[in-house]
Design a protein around this nucleic acid. Structure first.
Lengths: 117, 117
DNA sequence: CCAAACTAGATAGCAACGCCAACTAGCTGT
DNA sequence: ACAGCTAGTTGGCGTTGCTATCTAGTTTGG
């Protein structure tokens, strides 16, 4: 079985990206590795870059090109104030939703050991 | 602001439906109200019935028509053994995913009060 | 008595978005 | 020279929740 259903990322992935960016500016390829390290599975380029492009169009992130002395050029992203607000609102709402879904889903696993608290 | 982003239900809605069905057999219209009561927002017919149809096609739920003495006929759904397995596997995987996403998202809110544990 | 509102379910078409695959391009190591 | 990694981009696909609309029975109100 796969580690995650692709659909589960929908709507959350932009929030996860913005969250990583609160640590400081970062480029796409590194972002992808940080998300993997966070246990969220592999986020391939074809998934990540379109998300970053959307965030940029919405003004949630700002970009800066770096042309390092060695290696390919990197596109560094950093949070804008608008991005911070979007993250704050979105994260709060998602966490509330996930909390309720978690509560409901847990009742299924607990059905067999009724701990009368 | 809305209570939830529509996208957040993707992939989880079938699990939520199956979870409600662990309480016993239930018909669609009532399912929709139970999900709302659980704090997950309104799940309209156009969303719910296709989900139930998929679950039936996959053999995760079995149906029974009731023709009550009054009111429209109801289609009662109940979990099959296959549905229970699907729920167990899916719920575990989603809970793990949500746990990791929650951890990451919380770091953004905690960024400003560095509690050095 | 007819209309509105509610219960109960079904379906068509739309749009968002993550996925796969393929591509450019620079650098490194053998 | 060529394979492989880093870095980013694009096109088209499939899933699936949403809106809107429809059928049909029941109840309530003017």
């Amino acid at each position: 079985m796969e580690v995650r259903d692709p659909q589960w990322l929908r709507g959350v992935l932009p929030l996860l990206v913005l969250t990583v960016l609160t640590r400081g500016e970062c480029y796409g390829y590194d972002l992808s590795r940080q998300l993997e390290t966070a246990g969220l599975g592999t986020i391939k380029g074809g998934t990540l870059y379109p998300v970053l492009a959307r965030l940029e169009r919405e003004g949630s992130v700002a970009i800066r090109w770096s042309e390092p002395t060695s290696g390919p050029a990197r596109k560094y992203y950093r949070l804008t104030p608008a991005g911070k607000e979007q993250l704050a609102a979105g994260a709060t709402a998602w966490l509330a939703f996930a909390e309720r879904a978690t509560q409901l889903l847990r009742t299924a696993s607990e059905e067999h050991h009724d701990a009368t608290t």
